[in-house]
Nucleic acid binder design. Structure first.
Lengths: 230, 230
DNA sequence: CGCGAGCTTGACGTTGTTCAACTAGAGTGG
DNA sequence: CCACTCTAGTTGAACAACGTCAAGCTCGCG
């Protein structure tokens, strides 16, 4: 977790949509209340149940957000690529984390003092409205997720996961998967054995191909049909 | 769907937390861009897929929010009692409804022009921040829901539903259920037959009692244990 | 009294989990 | 360089959970 003095927010802001509604003074303020941290794969950025002091913005890498469940069954609620901030609803409710964030690849993140962000919510309406739009998009994603896990069978669930992974998380095709089978299972809400069986089936049917960690999607439409049918 | 000229927003605001951050002028503005509508049980307030023109605030009754799914299996994502507004994430994303709202009991609702609300998000930061807090609470509820439907068995799911219904939706105990078994099933994400079997089991074990439409919860702690264990 | 909608019950079949065994590959130490 | 170990991935068989289906029941209403 080496600390790293990374550009500055004005520069970083240029590369992302995230802070587009901030003016120079605001970015300067954020800049003076932030640290940039580098995480190694497998390191926890914050843990479910702990109080939240920082607003976290991913600037490099891949982050896994998951709900820890008893009996070591986790539930991955999302993956996150830069540049984006992690929306933790708990910040606005009880100031505690309701899920764990873990670096799935080599990751850098900016930690910004939460009170500074709170001030900005009050002073900058455009940012605040943009924030509502972003979290609304996430909420719609959660709806799909709930639909998926209540009504769909394993094939539909794995199809959903694949459609989520590409292009959103892995833009290339084929892509190198940095997640293990158990992660795919936690993302799909099923067991790793089921994931394996479904992937094998998909491969047999020519929908995808798997070579080690490399996955290629041949027939996206077919996956969409499977996703719809459940 | 008789139109009803109901008090005014300043008065209504007194009874609710919803508009506590509005000043008189703002309430007046809302007042002049709203209609109050009365819905009979079973009537649709808005339907999934339609564009959204109004911000909707429930002032009386009970509203069922559900995602329509193919094969007539619905998924109830929440129930709503007055006084509260319906947060439709689609409003901030694509201006379409992503679920259907239906009056489950005799219901009145205020429909407020969505552009007026949007202006208020920009002009009134306290309201806007309060809004973010409210929708964050809902997001946490969705997390629980996803956990529930992926990891829990029927007993845990029905326990969750009962714990949700009382006291949040039906404050009294015992309470008269205005929902049918299919609704309980759609809320729990299982079939109505399973709901019936689980309720019977709960009754046999003395956790609840059922008399027609009247349900009494005797042992809330036991339900919480069942909910936790899955 | 008869009808129909919603509720209840039981039998059955499917699905997916669980469990255990096996494989492949990477890392370690002699 | 080879055996050893450890982890992740894979496979198959047995089992449990739940959904499906069909039949019967209850109660309100005409």
């Amino acid at each position: 977790m080496a600390q790293e003095y990374h550009n500055n927010c004005s520069l970083c802001g240029r590369n992302s949509e995230v802070f587009k509604y901030m003016d120079k003074d605001e970015l300067k303020k954020i800049d003076s209340h932030r640290v940039s941290i580098r995480y190694k794969p497998g390191e926890i950025i914050f843990k479910q149940g702990t109080p939240c002091y920082n607003f976290i913005c991913i600037t490099q890498g891949l982050v896994k957000l998951y709900i820890e469940h008893q009996r070591n069954r986790n539930l991955i609620i999302g993956l996150m690529r830069p540049v984006n901030y992690i929306y933790e609803p708990g910040f606005f409710v009880d100031k505690h984390h309701h899920f764990t964030a873990l670096a799935a690849e080599e990751t850098t993140a900016c930690l910004i003092d939460i009170n500074v962000m709170k001030e900005l919510f009050f002073s900058n309406q455009a940012f605040s409205y943009d924030f509502i739009q972003r979290i609304s998009r996430q909420a719609l994603g959660l709806f799909d997720r709930i639909s998926s896990c209540t009504h769909k069978h394993v094939f539909g669930k794995v199809a959903d996961t694949l459609l989520y992974l590409h292009p959103k998380i892995y833009p290339e095709n084929p892509f190198y998967l940095s997640l293990c089978r158990q992660d795919l299972a936690d993302l799909s809400g099923i067991t790793k054995e089921s994931v394996i069986r479904v992937l094998k089936k998909f491969q047999e049917e020519g929908i995808i191909s798997i070579n080690g960690d490399q996955i290629e999607i041949f027939d996206r439409e077919r996956l969409e049909v499977i996703s719809d049918k459940g």
